[in-house]
Every structure is written in C-alpha cells, then in structure tokens.
C-alpha cells in the first residue's frame, strides 16, 4: 500500500519546499511592514475608507492588532485564497493529466485498483499541504516577537493546523474535477473557477438571506480571525472540512471507478 503515494510525495517535495519558503517570505514581509503601518497610518480610518464588500471578501475585521493584520494580509489572502486555489488547481491536474497524456494506461495495467489509485494520488497532496505549513508558523511566531507584538504560540500553531483540513477540502474539489474531466487544462480551470466561486459565495453572502448557500463552501469552516483575534479554535468546522474532503474523495473514486478511460 501507498507505493504510489510515496512516489508522488517524493516528486512533490521540492515544489513544497519552494512553496513553504515563498509563503515564509510573504509572512516575513507582512510582519516587517506592520510596525511602520501601525505607527504612520490611522488604521481605523484606512479601514473605513474601504467599501464594505471588500472588507467582507477579504475577511478584514481589524488592523489594529498584528493578529487582525496577519489574519487578512497573510491568512485570508495567502492561505484561504492563494493556497486554496493552488491546491484545487494542482490536484485537478493529477488524474486528468495522466489520462490526457496516456500515462493512465500504464498505471492501470498494474495490479492497482482505480479507487486505490485515486486515493493514493490524493494522499500525496499531503506533501504540499503540510509542507506549506511547516516553515511559515515559525517565521510568524519569531517575527511577531522581533517586532514586539508577540502572538500566542498555540494561536499560531492552530491557525496553521486548522488550515490543513481546509486545504485538503480545496484539493478535494480539484480531485473531483480531475476525474470528471479528462483534459487536465479543463479540469484545472473548472477547479479554479469553482473554488473561487465558493469563496465569493461564502464571503459575500454572509449576513444575507442567502447565507446558507455559503455553507457548502470550505471557507465557511476555516476562520483565521477567530483563531488569531479571539483564540477560538473551530473544531466542529475542522470536522466539517474532513467530512467534505472524504465526500470529495469518495465521489471521485466512484466516478473514476466506472468511467471509460480514453
């Protein structure tokens, strides 16, 4: 078991290190600019200048604490949007690209069930998902201390740990797209579009009558603000994300199990 996961995982290590380093650089930059931002800009006034929908989409609650600032500059932007889209996109390429380029024939000629193939390829996405969360929390924690705005270590850890089921759920969207469409380019575009649409539906519909529509969006269940501002860890939300991930995985396995491979 997990031979394919090991193989895929190894091939994703380099990219994941690059991802982790890049995100760490973003984290360091955000933390580095915060003191001058705080000192020279009236942050409440700045907030007031933004139209409400923008604040809502970006999940901005406050900029007057480092936690609030990081929550939208780093976590909403970097994790919820960028990483979420990246994982949906990247996972959408897995199965579809194998089919697209004719590699699936060789893979499936081996004693490997289709369900197992889908599950193992998906499991290998743990490498970028976990990898992206290895270095940045260290940078955030140390960086916050260096600028004298220390954050609780548990909060920093939690905001990263809770992002893992969220990112898996986004990858699940990509996985489903990857088995439904056998052209990688199409699967990837659909995965990007759907993930972004879910993000918008969740953030724009919050507080409206259509709020329930956003409940199918993974973004509903991962809230960096709650963690960094209130120290509230939404374990039920994490459970929802795990359930969502499994649902995407099982649906993908069922679909791929019965489809013709051309």
């Amino acid at each position: 078991m997990f031979e394919l996961t090991r193989y895929d995982g190894r091939r994703r290590v380099r990219g994941s290190i690059a991802l982790s380093v890049g995100l760490s650089a973003l984290a360091a930059m955000v933390i580095w600019v915060y003191p001058s931002f705080e000192a020279e800009v009236d942050l409440d006034q700045l907030l007031a200048a933004y139209p409400d929908p923008i604040l809502q989409v970006m999940g901005v609650q406050t900029m007057t604490s480092l936690g609030g600032f990081l929550s939208f500059e780093l976590y909403t932007f970097g994790w919820v949007i960028m990483l979420g889209l990246y994982l949906a996109y990247s996972t959408a390429g897995t199965i579809a690209d194998d089919v697209d380029r004719g590699r699936m024939d060789v893979l499936l000629s081996m004693p490997l069930s289709r369900r197992r193939l889908v599950a193992e390829r998906f499991a290998a996405m743990a490498v970028p998902i976990v990898g992206a969360n290895l270095l940045p929390p260290v940078v955030v924690f140390i960086g916050a201390r260096l600028i004298d705005h220390p954050l609780a270590a548990t909060d920093v850890l939690a905001v990263h740990l809770l992002s893992i089921p969220y990112l898996f759920a986004c990858a699940g969207i990509g996985l489903l797209a990857s088995v439904v469409f056998d052209r990688a380019a199409i699967a990837q575009r659909v995965a990007l579009g759907v993930t972004f649409a879910l993000f918008l539906s969740e953030s724009l519909l919050t507080g409206t009558d259509a709020e329930t529509v956003g409940s199918i969006a993974p973004m509903r269940y991962y809230d960096p603000n709650a963690v960094l501002l209130e120290g509230h860890y939404d374990l039920v939300g994490a459970g929802m994300l795990v359930a969502m991930t499994l649902a995407f995985l099982v649906a993908s396995q069922l679909w791929f199990g019965r489809t013709d491979i051309h």
Partner: peptide, 11 residues
C-alpha cells in the same frame, strides 16, 4: 499480466 500500450507514456 504485462501490457505495452501503442504509445506508452511515463511521468
């Protein structure tokens, strides 16, 4: 079983 497709492709 061993199988060689008409246009084998690998990673």
């Amino acid at each position: 079983l061993g199988y060689l497709p008409d246009d084998p492709a690998f990673d």
